[in-house]
Design a protein around this nucleic acid. Structure first.
Lengths: 150, 150
DNA sequence: TACTAAATAGGAATTATTACTATGATATCC
DNA sequence: GGATATCATAGTAATAATTCCTATTTAGTA
């Protein structure tokens, strides 16, 4: 998605496509790392030196309210952001902190589950986040008894 | 569960059962409101005036690490705590902020789903939180066109 | 009862996020 | 196309949840 495309898309949903916003959106879309506001700030700043962290927070909130991206609640109380607007699940490593999307196949299962549960839940659902916590494969191997650090 | 029972249980898992800790644990177990540290502090303080908020934070962390309770990540970046240690799902109202446990029947479905997904996920899972966001029934009725506030 | 290790509480420090505001850019209306 | 109103940016300061530090107290143990 080119910057022009992003620009048009933002205008379509009623968000004024400033250069900062386009760059912030582009940065978030270009990664699967679920970055923090700070990380996005650092990434965009390199080719946008005057950028303010406030602008990043403001843009992320604007995008979230428009449903273009989503805010992820993290136990460390530092928000992360996800460029994929459709509901999907996550795996969070409780050792290194990385946040991974679940594999597409798993997400398909979860979608089926949504339909199954929809009318068993009190209240009108507008979003969901199936979250798994554990040790990612990399941390698992680093923690292996044959590969202990300390 | 009496205070004596709590005391013994804490000792069993290697946590020194001080009066503060017992009262904090009791307060959290006695509610389904998923309170914040601050809320627990206020609740316990009434019959424990010398209590420090630090002690509440410390106790909650200790209990969480021991697997007795769980910490819930919230989008507002204010942690809430859940006295039920077993994995279960939540419904979060995006209007009033309340956090409800899912009905037992739904949790049963989710347990079955866990088994189904277990070996389709990379990494070793140690916990999960199926989270639905939406409007609780009370907020829905308050927002109804026949009952509009403003 | 004395000893040791850990818990408490108070204050200070940290830090993610928000609020405020002057300046600058963009869009709208004529 | 120019004047004007609206909105975005960026800087600073404010807010507030959580953590850090430390002297004092308490609980468990010999």
């Amino acid at each position: 998605m080119s910057r022009t495309d992003i620009s048009n898309m933002l205008r379509d949903v009623g968000i004024r496509p400033t250069p900062q916003r386009v760059a912030i959106y582009e940065a978030l879309k270009g990664t699967t790392r679920h970055p923090t506001a700070e990380a996005i700030y650092e990434a965009v700043k390199s080719d946008f030196p005057s950028l303010s962290l406030n602008t990043v927070y403001d843009a992320l909130q604007t995008f979230t309210e428009a449903g273009l991206i989503r805010k992820l609640a993290m136990k460390e109380n530092i928000s992360r952001y996800d460029g994929k607007p459709a509901p999907h699940g996550h795996f969070v490593c409780i050792r290194c902190g990385r946040v991974e999307d679940l594999r597409a196949a798993v997400d398909e299962e979860l979608k089926r589950i949504d339909l199954m549960l929809k009318d068993k839940i009190n209240g009108r659902i507008v979003d969901r986040d199936y979250r798994f916590y554990g040790y990612c494969t990399e941390c698992e191997s680093e923690m292996s008894p044959y590969n202990k650090k300390s």
